[in-house]
Design a protein around this nucleic acid. Structure first.
Length: 690
DNA sequence: CGGAGTCTCAAAGGCAATGG
DNA sequence: CCATTGCCTTTGAGACTCCG
């Protein structure tokens, strides 16, 4: 028994990965270190024969694979040894091992059966509705690229989380009992799945009401002036109603939610999730949703899935053509309206009322906070629009008024307050730089503006970083000058240039440059001391801070941006009332499932052309293309659905072998896979589908 | 002669991204 | 993780002129 276990353990292929020469070198070094046998094992890893002939024991094999895994994760030797020791400690004994191997063998067989023979669904009650049975092959995710992307937002089947040997994907037949499933392929047949909590790329909104159809659901969402969801999933009742659907928005690049993830991107992700729920509240979205990391599974064959928009979104601006949710939702208007945003600043303002120069400080903070709302170069679109409409001078006046109104909440109205407000407002307005504007400069270039930084391209971020660095450099010089002047005992303006240069250690030229900003240096010094005192830090360091919160959102997409072609605006395509929409042709890249010739699809997030609906149960064999817009002319419409029809062809071949593939167009006209063209079948299918 | 003021240009220096 | 690139101002050396 034990011997057979040994042989089984050795079955996995030797760790000859093609992931790089360096990796192999590292693995080999460690292999040598741990169990050098002076022969082939060290060079190419142990084989089954090695193990069988007892030249390498199962324990050693475990050590070997674990050592390689540690090396791949670039661990220190100390940590590696600790992990290996702990693994040795709780390694299963031989009987457990045999059981484990049996389980895995069974699992592999299940997966093989699912992929090969297909899925047999028994008639059953699913999510509170009866669904009839059906036999299907293949996976629903083959039908549309967005479904595949959705799958990538789930955990892998096994061993995804470091330090955890538990399967990380969970699935279940109902909402209440979720259980871990060791295979992703099998988990995707269940009604509920859990998303990857570490890399989040899916927004799930739960709509707690029934809809007559998916078209109605999409229509209601459109009426709320929201971008089209990528996927709508629910169960169809016998009356054809869509019951309590889950609405999904999928983001192309997931946001890292581990400890190392950037706070800006996390904040933006959470904010967008909150806003989507808030805006969908009229349709029954639960804004106190308990777990947004679990949702109805669009790939489950019992549920009805509608693909409304098959291009993924991005959080902020994406140079490669993904439409930005921040843009489509007009995030600027929500600033300060949700918890965590603006609350801390309110506290600062309240606390700032004490002290000798309270007016000066409070007005300054008010200005810093409000200037974004009025400046013509503000990152906020609404502010830019308004400022350009009324003109810069008028915007400045408005800004002064707003600051005064704000200050009156904290201080008695008097001439001195008005003067201070006007002076500070002018100061902030004239020195406003949108690229480095931030509510809290000490935190880095654009840390307090998640919606803004996400909207920047890589180049723009670099530019902003450069400007920010330069600004900090200048401020450091100003502070040095202020410190030197203080040591001399006069105002910097009253000290000779050469003397001040000698005292401060900067060049004369630099002092000439900053002659008119010496006062600002004093202000910065005072501010720095104040902040330092608040944090119990009495050393003065004028250097820049290093904790910038910038998440690279376009890091991995270095491919050619050739998939995006800006085109003219055809009249038939014009969505009324949607003024800022960008119309694009997005060319889908060809792949195995999309057909060999990729077509051009005219799509837009605010007004998609059609919905691809895959019903649950036996209806899964009959996907429907539902037209949801009347203002598109026939030719444009045909061009839009054509690639999708191609996908369905491939999908159908995979799913049903030689059975005819039927898909209804708009619920009335049916096309059939031309390979199986048969007029008679087509007509009967048409009757069945309508 | 030394301080004040001006100009030019290359180097510095910090931030963000990238690639191995 | 680390070296490197790209980016953007600031900075400083050095040269020059003017003036008391």
């Amino acid at each position: 028994m034990v011997k057979s276990a040994v042989v089984q353990i050795a079955r996995p292929a030797p760790a000859r990965r093609r992931s790089g020469l360096r990796l192999r070198m590292l693995g080999r070094t460690i292999a040598n270190e741990y169990f050098y046998r002076g022969g082939s094992a060290a060079r190419r890893g142990p084989t089954g024969a090695d193990v069988a002939s007892r030249r390498i024991s199962p324990d050693e094999w475990h050590d070997y694979t674990l050592a390689i895994s540690c090396a791949r994760r670039a661990m220190s030797k100390l940590k590696r040894d600790a992990i290996m020791a702990s693994r040795r400690h709780d390694r299963p004994d031989d009987d457990d091992l045999v059981e484990m191997i049996e389980k895995r063998r069974h699992l592999r067989a299940e997966v093989k059966k699912r992929i090969g023979a297909g899925l047999v669904l028994e008639p059953d009650i699913s999510c509170g509705a009866f669904v009839d049975g059906v036999k299907l092959r293949g996976f629903r995710s083959s039908l549309d690229p967005i479904l595949k992307l959705f799958v990538s937002k789930l955990c892998k089947g096994r061993y995804t989380r470091r330090g955890s040997r538990l399967p990380s994907i969970s699935s279940s037949r109902d909402k209440a009992s979720i259980f871990p499933c060791p295979s992703k392929a099998l988990a995707l047949d269940d009604e509920y799945v859990t998303f990857n909590p570490m890399m989040r790329g899916v927004f799930r909104v739960d709509l707690d009401r029934d809809f007559a159809s998916t078209e109605e659901c999409q229509e209601k969402i459109r009426e709320l002036r929201l971008p089209a969801p990528n996927i709508i999933t629910g169960v169809s009742t016998s009356g054809g109603k869509l019951r309590r659907p889950h609405v999904y928005f999928v983001v192309k690049h997931s946001v890292c939610f581990t400890g190392n993830g950037r706070n800006g991107a996390k904040a933006l992700f959470k904010l967008i999730g909150t806003i989507l729920t808030e805006r969908l509240a009229p349709l029954g979205a639960d804004r106190f949703a308990t777990n947004t990391l679990r949702g109805k599974n669009p790939l489950c064959e019992r549920l009805t899935t509608a693909v409304v928009y098959s291009e993924p979104y991005s959080l902020g601006f994406d140079p490669h053509g993904c439409e930005s949710l921040a843009d489509l939702l007009d995030l600027g208007q929500y600033r300060g309206k949700f918890s965590n945003f603006g609350a801390a600043e309110d506290m600062l303002l309240r606390d700032g009322r004490r002290g000798s120069n309270a007016v000066f400080r409070t007005v300054g903070r008010l200005c810093a906070r409000l200037v974004h709302e009025f400046h013509p170069e503000s990152p906020r679109r609404s502010a830019r629009y308004r400022a350009n409409l009324v003109g810069t001078d008028h915007a400045l006046e408005d800004f002064e008024d707003a600051v005064l109104r704000g200050a009156q909440q904290y201080f008695e109205d008097c001439e001195q307050l008005r003067r201070q407000c006007a002076k500070s407002a002018r100061y902030f307005f004239t020195r406003y730089d949108a690229r480095i504007a931030s509510a809290n400069r000490r935190r880095g270039a654009m840390a307090a503006e998640p919606e803004y930084l996400a909207a920047l391209s890589k180049r723009e971020k670099q530019q902003a970083g450069g400007r920010y660095a330069a600004l900090k450099c200048k401020e450091a010089t100003l502070i040095r000058l202020a410190v030197a002047a203080e040591e001399i005992g006069h105002l910097a303006e009253d000290i000779g240039v050469s003397e001040l240069a000698r005292a401060s250690g900067v060049s004369r030229m630099t002092i000439y440059r900053h002659r008119h900003e010496l006062e600002r240096g004093r202000y910065l010094l005072a501010e720095m001391r104040e902040n330092g005192a608040a944090q119990g830090d009495h050393t003065i360091h004028a250097g820049p801070t290093s904790d910038c919160n910038i998440q690279c959102l376009d890091k991995r997409d270095t491919g050619k941006s050739g998939s995006l072609e800006e085109m003219g605006t055809p009249g038939a395509e014009h969505p009324e009332g949607v003024t800022q929409s960008r119309r694009q042709f997005i060319k889908r890249r060809g792949s195995r499932f999309m057909g060999s010739k990729s077509g051009k699809v005219r799509v837009h997030a605010l007004n998609p052309v059609f919905i691809l609906e895959i019903p649950g149960g036996s209806g899964a064999k009959r996907p429907r293309i539902v037209r949801i817009r009347d203002d598109v002319d026939e030719l444009a419409y045909e061009a839009a659905v054509e690639p999708t029809i191609r996908f369905i062809d491939d999908f159908g071949r995979e799913r049903m072998g030689n059975e005819p593939v039927i898909y209804a167009h708009n619920g009335a006209v049916a096309w059939k896979n031309p390979d199986f063209a048969d007029r008679r079948n087509l007509n009967s299918a048409n009757r069945r589908s309508s």
